[in-house]
Design a protein around this nucleic acid. Structure first.
Lengths: 338, 338
DNA sequence: ACGATTGATGAAAACCTTTACATCAATGAT
DNA sequence: ATCATTGATGTAAAGGTTTTCATCAATCGT
């Protein structure tokens, strides 16, 4: 159809009056070719509009210089910023990225895995929090180089780059305590999810550190969605065990709490303080704007990609786990307790 | 390093006791091979764990069965749902997708374009609203098959799949009129942006259709961000020309308006009605929840991909422009005028 | 002045497929 | 019984690179 017969390395070689080997070298190892011929070659390249065929190159080199990013949902508010970091670092090192949107669907995961086994990608970044489906079956197949991000995977052999959730939650809780709060609820308990578990642990330690006894009725389950936040807040009213402040496992949950409390016509933050975690984009838009812990997403992306590319070039991972500190962002959803 | 010598078609052939040609046929055109041998081959494939090398295949076939999606920002709330539609249709037809996050950066666009010229992708989906950078220079280079989505590109030769903005804005405006509003503001005028222009035009036609004179002070510029929405609302107070209802060019703008009005302690929607466009995910979360026009994003994605794949197989595009109707979603941000 | 070293280049193999063409046996028609 | 047709399979070429090895000229050290 539209194949207008792209120029190949042979066309360039002919035009420049050299062999294809020389052209290849002029492109990839310019120092190994004499100045005069290099000029002839670059000239011929410009004239022909030659651009090297990535397929042929990958076939020969047995690697694609591509990284596959597996994400359950590219719409996730944490995703896009981390992605930019990943891309930045990858392109700096001559790699491209490829995004697979799995929707947590096993067959989609398996589909995307073929990118690896068919050499279309050399390494893997996992947002999914678990090994992709195809791998879980047979433990014996060698895992490709990969790095987890956003959510660690249970399999300990996969390095992880993320935020220090425990420490972050502790800082958040201490911030609330510093504002005089003693009855602080934790919304979003989910022992099965590593992130939630760690944030809860940070919360507990901060309370313990301040000598505050934990009221078990103030810890509510939730997976971290807005809806779960709303439901959790409602549940507190049903139980009639009210806190003065809500520490939410993430911003989405916090948003749900704000919605629930606004619907009950409370004056925020005067009557209740609310704290989130993540600092997703509209944490600053919602009203009251959300005091939260900010994940350094760009930096996380860069670090993860750097680690993966290191793995690819044979380096042993310096550490299995790289954690960045979350930063306290003070906005308007937390007030001093009355 | 981790290259443990993947099985090739030759290994399979040897194991099955046939030629590599037969293996290839058994995989790609199963009917052309006898049942007995086909069984032997599939068996051998299973035993070797063979998976066909996409690079070699693409090199030989001169196409990759990959589609490149160029998006300025994967975090855009409209993006992810359209993406799912694109992916669904692509994978149904044996294609994979590859996402390029351009950040509206010319050099990134050019980078990603090499995917096309180096045969790593066969076609292009554009979210960017313009031809990618490399193309704009030299008009003579043949454009690859591509389809625009979300935002049309000025170049008329690029087919477009999207929502009927004019009609949708008209319906939205008529909804406000049906609630008794006569002083309706339009926030987000930007004649240079096709989407904004069309929505404004729909607004104007609805007013004209209802015999309402347009008060020019009620039309405010804005590119469509939350911040622009907030600023536009503030500007109305400065001008002291207040409407009873705000038609916002999109939900992000509407959110800005809600923030501005809430900050001024107005009771919404009793004192002002607000309408958005797009139905992005948190339109239902914000308070008051947003009455808006819903884009059928999944359907748009599917249709766009279908059209692109049609182009790739040589079909002429049935139409240069495919528009879906937006659906009115009534929530709580619009009230009858008092 | 001569052999050894260096530097630049070319020939050809290898990477793994798909597919046009050839081959061969079996079937069908006369 | 013979010839044409069909169906299944194999052989080999082609797709565009990179890279090893060989070649050759020029430089260097003595």
């Amino acid at each position: 159809m539209q194949q207008q017969k792209l120029a190949t390395i042979e066309d360039v070689a002919a035009l420049a009056g050299v062999s294809i080997a020389t052209v290849s070298r002029a492109i990839n190892e310019p120092t190994k070719v004499a100045d005069a011929t290099r000029r002839k070659v670059t000239d011929a390249i410009a004239r022909t509009g030659y651009t090297t065929n990535a397929m042929a190159r990958s076939l020969r080199m047995r690697r694609s210089n591509m990284i596959l990013i597996l994400a359950p949902d590219v719409g996730d508010p944490n995703f896009s910023n981390i992605l930019v970091g990943l891309e930045t670092e990858a392109s700096k090192r001559g790699y491209g990225v490829l995004i697979g949107n799995t929707q947590n669907d096993a067959s989609r995961e398996a589909d995307y895995l073929r990118f690896i086994s068919s050499n279309q990608a050399d390494g893997l970044i996992l947002f999914t929090g678990h090994l992709p489906f195809g791998f879980r079956q047979d433990g014996e197949t060698r895992l490709p180089p990969m790095v987890a991000v956003n959510e660690p995977v249970p399999d300990a052999s996969v390095p992880y780059v993320g935020v220090d959730n425990l420490e972050g939650a502790r800082v958040a809780t201490e911030h609330l305590i510093s504002q005089g709060h003693r009855r602080i609820a934790f919304l979003g308990r989910a022992p099965g999810r590593e992130v939630n578990r760690l944030r809860e642990e940070g919360y507990r330690r901060a309370l313990a550190g301040a000598g505050i006894d934990l009221d078990a009725r103030l810890v509510i389950d939730g997976e971290g969605t807005t809806e779960s936040g709303r439901a959790a807040a409602e549940l507190m009213f049903v139980r009639d065990a009210l806190p003065t402040a809500f520490l939410c496992v993430n911003d989405a949950t916090a948003l749900g709490v704000i919605i629930a409390l606004s619907a009950r016509h409370y004056d925020l933050p005067r009557q209740f303080s609310i704290m989130g975690f993540d600092d997703i984009s509209f944490a600053s838009f919602v009203s009251p704007s959300l005091t939260t812990m900010k994940q350094p997403r760009h930096k996380i992306g860069e670090a993860a990609m750097e680690m993966l590319l290191g793995l690819l070039s044979g380096e042993a991972p310096s550490q299995q786990k790289v954690l960045f500190r979350a930063e306290l962002i003070v906005r308007n959803s937390v007030a001093r307790v009355r």
